[in-house]
Write a protein that binds this DNA or RNA. Structure first.
Length: 308
RNA sequence: GGGUAGAUUCCCGAGCGGCCAAAGGGAGCAGACUGUAAAUCUGCCGUCUCUGACUUCGGUGGUCCGAAUCCACCUCUACCCA
């Protein structure tokens, strides 16, 4: 018996840890839908490089938050959060338990917890701040923040100029300071079961290598060409690992083989960062699905969660 | 067979008598993260009983108060001449 009451299952983990596949199995078993939680799979045309599930692979399971933005457009967490939460609510109305699947930590956070995202960003102001940064240096900008929002300045390293600029932006645009916009205590949005897929590190790295090789076989090079034609090297979508590395190749500075190795390397780095992020969740359930015992354990946890 | 260059910590690579456990980079590991997040940034990185001690810079001996740095021989590598 399934009781969907405000429940959401999160399947998260590093790239290539097997999220999509496991999520699909769950969605089928629970007769539910997938809500993708991935900052790059939102882009249309970015298929091979983001390891996006194909329509055939979806096997009639609905997948939301995939292919919702054109490759030349920007997107943000706040937009993601608004749309995805909307979908989750809708699924709840249908008595379904949404399966959130993805590896973008910040996006996962935006579903897990209530968040107030300061204010919109303003193109002109940002350009001005970036110019100031160039002119006066990182330390100057950091000192500026220190006067406005000492608490935030304390937390953000001087060299992390993007964060410093955003914090300044919030103040100039809204008059509020960033450290005040955050909620102190964070009640969870939903009745949540979160699973972090966690193959052994070596195994993970081997899977990443294999996946990157497959991407090349599936026509990554052509996809990148097309995407860059439809956007630019500066586009947000092209910041993704698997795309940005080709810049060197098209400029004639890297061989295809070097690009491939770079993509593998960057993917490993990324995977580590993802794991760092998920380790912050005290409520996370870590599982190596290839380990039979752990697989059983996680399945019974899920079973218990959906029934209770 | 002769000559030249070189062998540095996981890798690349600086050091060329004391300020050297040895610059810098890479890899690896750990961490931060609220509107670019597959982004951006930070820390550790010879060993230990860790504000000090110990063992390292191809090997063995030597010079010197003191050597990764100088000398001798040896081993290996690269290139050149035969």
């Amino acid at each position: 018996m399934i009781n969907s009451d405000n429940k959401v299952i999160f399947i998260v983990g590093a790239t290539a840890s097997g999220k999509s596949n496991f999520g699909l199995i769950l969605a089928q078993a629970l007769d539910s839908s997938i809500v993708s939680c991935d900052s790059m799979q939102i882009y249309r045309q970015a298929n091979v490089g983001t390891a996006k599930i194909s329509p055939e692979e979806m096997q009639d399971v609905d997948h939301f938050m995939i292919d919702i933005v054109d490759v030349d457009k920007s997107f943000s967490v706040s937009e993601y959060s608004a749309q995805a939460n909307e979908i989750i609510n809708q699924l709840h109305l249908d008595k379904k338990i949404p399966i959130v699947v993805g590896g973008t930590g910040l996006y996962v956070d935006s579903l897990l917890f209530p968040m107030s995202f300061g204010c919109n960003n303003d193109e002109e102001l940002r350009k001005k701040l970036e110019k100031d940064l160039e002119e006066y240096g990182a330390e100057y900008m950091h000192n500026l923040l220190k006067e406005i929002d000492p608490q935030e300045a304390e937390k953000v390293h001087c060299n992390n100029t993007k964060r410093v600029i955003r914090a300044l932006e919030i103040y100039y645009l809204s008059g509020k300071i960033k450290s005040e916009t955050k909620e102190l205590s964070k009640p969870m949005n939903y009745n949540t079961l979160l699973v972090v897929l966690n193959p052994p590190r070596k195994e993970l790295y081997a899977r990443i290598d294999k996946r990157v090789d497959e991407m090349f076989e599936k026509g990554l090079v052509e996809e990148v060409k097309m995407i860059v034609e439809n956007s630019s090297w500066d586009a947000q979508a092209v910041q993704a690992i698997g795309y940005k590395e080709f810049k060197g190749y098209f400029d004639g500075n890297l061989t295809l083989d070097e690009v491939k190795n770079l993509i593998k390397l960057n993917s490993r780095h990324y995977a580590k960062r993802q794991l760092s992020w998920f380790r912050r969740y005290p409520f996370a359930n870590w599982a190596d699905l290839d380990d039979e015992k752990q697989y059983e354990e996680i399945l019974s946890k899920i079973l218990k969660f959906v029934q209770e």
